[in-house]
Design a binder for these strands. Structure first.
Lengths: 135, 135
DNA sequence: TATCTGTTATACTATAAATATAACAAGTAG
DNA sequence: CTACTTGTTATATTTATAGTATAACAGATA
C-alpha cells in the first residue's frame, strides 16, 4: 500500500490518509481482514503525528471500514463492508451537487461528466491504470 | 433567487452561499448581467456578516462568474462564462475521486453512479424539479 | 453634497488541524 | 510474572480558517 501525502494541500492530512485507505479497499489492494500498521509505525513512516493517523483510523472505524482490537491492532473490516445505504446516498448527493453545478455552469455536457465518472471509476477499481508500478 | 443557509452545517457559510449562486447561474435563475444584492443588503437579508457575503462574491469574481463595479455593484458575468478548461477538469477530478472511491468501496455499481449523476444534473439544470414551489 | 457602492483595516472569538508529551489499560510473548 | 506493543485518553500549544463587529476610505451617482 502506497500512501502519498501533500502536507501543503488544503485537504487535511487525516482526510488524505483516510481517502487513500478507502481507495485501497475499493481497489482490493487492501483485502478483508488485512492488518494495517500501528498508529505509531504509520505515523513514523509518513513523518506525521500519531494522533493524525489515529484520527483517520477512528473515522474509518466509525464508518465500518476498519476494526480495531487491543493488541492485534487495526485490520480491514473482516466481515461485510459498509453498504451504499440511503444515508450514504444522501451524503453523496449533497457532496456531488455543488461539483456538478459548477460543471454545468461551465458548460459541461452530461455525457462529458459521465465519461469523467467512468474514467475515475476505472482508476479506483484498477489502481495500476494510474501512476503506480508498485506493489 | 432563493438562498437557504444552514448555520449549523460543517460547510462554511460563504461556501454555501457561493454554491447556491453557482447553481443559480447553472440553472439560468441568475441570467447574464443580472444584478445581485449589495454585500450589505444580502448580509442583512440572510442575517450574516457583510464580510461573509463579500468572501463568497470575491471567490466567484475570482473564478469569473461575477463582475464587480464601483457603484453598479455585483452582476452576473455579462460576457462569456468561465469554461470547463483543463485546470477545472483536474480540480473536478481530484474532488470527485474520493467520493467515487467510497461509493465503489460500498459496492455501488457504475450504472448506479451514472443514474445519480444524471439525476443531479437534471436537478441543477431545472430547479423546479427540486423542493421549490417558489419564484 | 449626500448617499450608496465595494474595499480595506483592525480586532476579537470560536473552531479545526496538527503536533508534542505523557500516561494508562489491555493483551501477548518471553 | 515481566516486558513490550497495542490502542486510548488527557493536556497543552501552535497555526489557520471562519465568522463577526466596527470603522473608515474611495469611487460613482443622484
Amino acid at each position: 500500500m502506497f500512501i502519498e501525502l501533500d502536507l501543503q494541500s488544503e485537504v487535511p492530512i487525516y482526510k488524505q490518509l483516510a481517502d487513500q485507505l478507502i481507495e485501497g479497499i475499493a481497489s482490493g489492494t487492501l483485502s478483508s481482514g488485512q492488518p494495517l500498521p500501528s498508529v505509531r509505525t504509520l505515523a513514523a513512516d509518513l513523518g506525521i503525528n500519531l494522533h493524525t493517523v489515529n484520527k483517520a483510523y477512528q473515522a474509518l472505524k466509525q464508518e465500518g471500514f476498519l476494526e480495531i482490537h487491543r493488541k492485534q491492532g487495526v485490520i480491514v473490516q473482516p466481515g461485510a463492508l459498509p453498504t451504499a445505504d440511503s444515508a450514504f446516498r444522501e451524503r453523496l448527493g449533497r457532496d456531488l451537487r455543488p461539483l456538478i453545478a459548477e460543471a454545468v455552469a461551465r458548460g459541461m455536457k452530461e455525457n462529458e461528466l459521465q465519461t469523467l465518472m467512468t474514467a475515475l471509476y476505472g482508476q479506483v477499481q484498477n489502481p495500476s491504470s494510474q501512476g503506480g508500478t508498485s506493489t
